[in-house]
Design a protein around this nucleic acid. Structure first.
Length: 280
DNA sequence: ACCTCGTCCTGGTTGC
DNA sequence: TGCAACCAGGACGAGG
């Protein structure tokens, strides 16, 4: 297991970076891994950023967004193992030096993360193409979710992982939300009754809110930018807990695969309805 | 349009 | 104890 930054983890990182970056000028930008900015040239990206000032650090779905004074925006996706820290560490892929003398390192063991510099007018169209509504915002309604699930024959969990349906859910919080909603991850998405969609809508918010309150999950050696750990991993109801008792009914948690992802659920609380056929 | 699968990548774990 | 095979999964592109 390693940290996989989903919405609560990215939000925790954003909240810690904001007070230390907002108002600061990027004195020096060093891109150490050319993959990071692909397909754009790394020197070009570094040069574009140097001398600019960070106005605000935002989050959209799983993206971190650094708005700069020039109008440019640096869009960072951490993918599997990306993270920021103010202490030197291994696997540094980029370094930002700020005008207060601090040094912010970007670390990414598996090098899936991406840095993208966008012009002001490119930003919103780019984000809108990638991300559906913010799950904790007012645009994410039960009716929206019903509309997005209603025409999809894929497994429910696969659709929840589609960032255009709702932005920010990943493998952990999808499993946790499905457990809370008592819905089997292999249910066909278009098979849900109205009350099941309403339940799911509500618990997606709950699961993510709990994650944010606990400052995200810390698995293995990951730490937030300030070096602290989250505690959400202590709150997992099903994720990674195959064989352990369900916190609701004590039946052993089962593990399966849904569209290539390890998936944990309670076979008793989250049954496939009799007569329904699992998707795929 | 939708769906599934392979790819990217590295380090930790598992199995012989 | 060594070492290779396997596993983890977010987003994306290919192919059905």
């Amino acid at each position: 297991m390693s940290l996989v930054p989903e919405l609560p983890e990215v939000e925790t990182i954003r909240a810690q970076l904001a007070p230390r970056l907002e108002g600061r000028t990027l004195v020096r930008v060093e891109i150490l891994d050319p993959r990071l900015t692909r397909p754009h040239d790394l020197f070009e990206v570094a040069e574009e950023l140097e001398g600019d000032r960070v106005l605000v650090v935002e989050r959209r779905g799983k993206y971190l967004l650094f708005r700069l004074e020039s109008g440019l925006a640096l869009l960072v996706h951490l993918r599997m193992t990306g993270g920021f820290g103010f202490s030197p560490t291994s696997h540094e892929r980029a370094v930002l030096e700020l005008d207060d003398g601090s040094r912010l390192a970007y670390r990414d063991v598996r090098r899936f993360g991406t840095w993208l510099v966008l012009e002001a007018d490119e930003l919103e169209p780019y984000l809108a193409a990638k991300n559906g509504p913010e799950p904790l915002g007012s645009r994410f309604t039960s009716a929206w979710l019903a509309g997005r699930l209603g025409h999809r024959r894929a497994p429910l969990k696969a659709v929840l992982l589609d960032q255009r349906v709702v932005a920010g859910l990943g493998n952990i919080y999808a499993d946790e939300a499905l457990w809370r909603a008592r819905l089997n991850p292999l249910r066909r998405a278009d098979d849900l009754a109205d009350d099941e969609v309403r339940r799911l809508h509500r618990v997606i918010r709950t699961a993510l809110q709990v994650g944010i309150e606990r400052q995200g999950s810390t698995l293995r050696d990951y730490t937030a930018p300030d070096g602290s750990s989250g505690s959400m991993q202590e709150e997992f109801r099903v994720y990674g807990r195959d064989g352990l008792p369900c916190p609701r009914c004590r039946a052993p948690i089962a593990k399966t695969r849904v569209s290539g992802r390890g998936s944990w659920f309670c076979p008793r609380c989250q049954p496939l309805p009799s007569g329904s056929t699992p998707s795929s």
